[in-house]
């Protein structure tokens, strides 16, 4: 496959940045999107130029490190996958592919396609801890959890924090991410001890960091590589409202 790539190049957070066009020839349709970028970077290095910076780590769809806004969609044209799991067979020979970094005020560009997503880590940190019994190893069956709730909690916990929800949202809202993190605890007995404080602190931190308000377009759910459901957002809203109304804190 021969492709034309329009890639956002930006020296640092302060630089203006612009699109640069690259032509790559002989790309295998079996290669992944990131492997295609590796091939491009090798050709750029051969010319003694600075390669394109992009985030990646596990390359097996579980770490949440890769990002990229490809042809108008976070993680590219396929559903429920991360960029590293996107394969070139999803494109056609001669295609022009536009690659942009996540765009959101709380995600400043570090360089080229790499954005700073520590805001998401900061929200997780604001959630605090879960109290646990000390002493001997507890019996695995001592805490009863129904299968339905445990499945929902597991679904919420599958969020890898890649930030595609923020990138897809026209409001740059992080509600789906925060809702997943709140839900994974709210659904389980272990999460009940600090549930009031947790949801209030995480929502407050989310607002503080400058993420937008949710207007229920559900673009986040459509682009989430882990298919986190917006029912989690409704759950977080319930948790937040009940904690505000009922709690003395």
């Amino acid at each position: 496959m021969d492709l034309k790539l329009k890639i956002w190049r930006q020296e640092n957070a302060q630089a203006k940045g612009e699109f640069k066009t690259y032509n790559v020839a002989g790309v295998s349709s079996d290669s992944s999107f990131l492997e295609m970028l590796d091939v491009l970077n090798e050709s750029i290095v051969d010319k003694v130029e600075t390669p394109v910076c992009f985030d990646h780590d596990c390359r097996e769809g579980i770490c949440g490190m890769c990002s990229l806004y490809i042809n108008g969609r976070p993680h590219g044209p396929d559903d429920a996958i991360t960029t590293c799991q996107l394969h070139m067979r999803k494109f056609k020979d001669g295609d022009t592919i536009t690659i942009e970094p996540w765009r959101a005020s709380p995600f400043p560009v570090i360089k080229d396609l790499v954005v700073d997503r520590t805001a998401l880590d900061s929200i997780i940190q604001s959630g605090g801890y879960t109290s646990a019994k000390t002493g001997g190893v507890p019996d695995a069956n001592a805490t009863l959890i129904d299968k339905y709730s445990s499945d929902l909690a597991m679904d919420a916990a599958s969020c890898i924090g890649c930030g595609a929800c923020v990138a897809a949202c026209k409001n740059a809202s992080a509600m789906l991410f925060v809702a997943a993190k709140v839900s994974q605890f709210a659904l389980l007995p272990q999460g009940q001890v600090e549930k009031t404080k947790r949801v209030q602190d995480m929502v407050a931190r989310m607002d503080e960091l400058g993420f937008g308000n949710c207007t229920n377009t559900y673009a986040c759910e459509m682009e989430c590589p882990k298919e986190i459901s917006v029912t989690n957002i409704a759950r977080m809203n319930r948790e937040f409202l009940s904690s505000k109304v009922c709690s003395e804190q």
Binding site: K6, W8, G17, F19, Y69, N71, G72, R73, P77, T98, E100, R103, A104, S105, P106, A168, K170, N171, A172, S173, G210, F211, G212, N213, T215, T217, Y218, A219, M222, E223
Partner: peptide, 20 residues
């Protein structure tokens, strides 16, 4: 607030996400 959160730089390619 939402426009402020989205930031001054918008995407070059308009969103292809199928929101209504």
């Amino acid at each position: 607030q939402n426009w402020k959160s989205r930031g001054s730089k918008s995407y070059a390619v308009a969103s292809k996400t199928k929101a209504t």
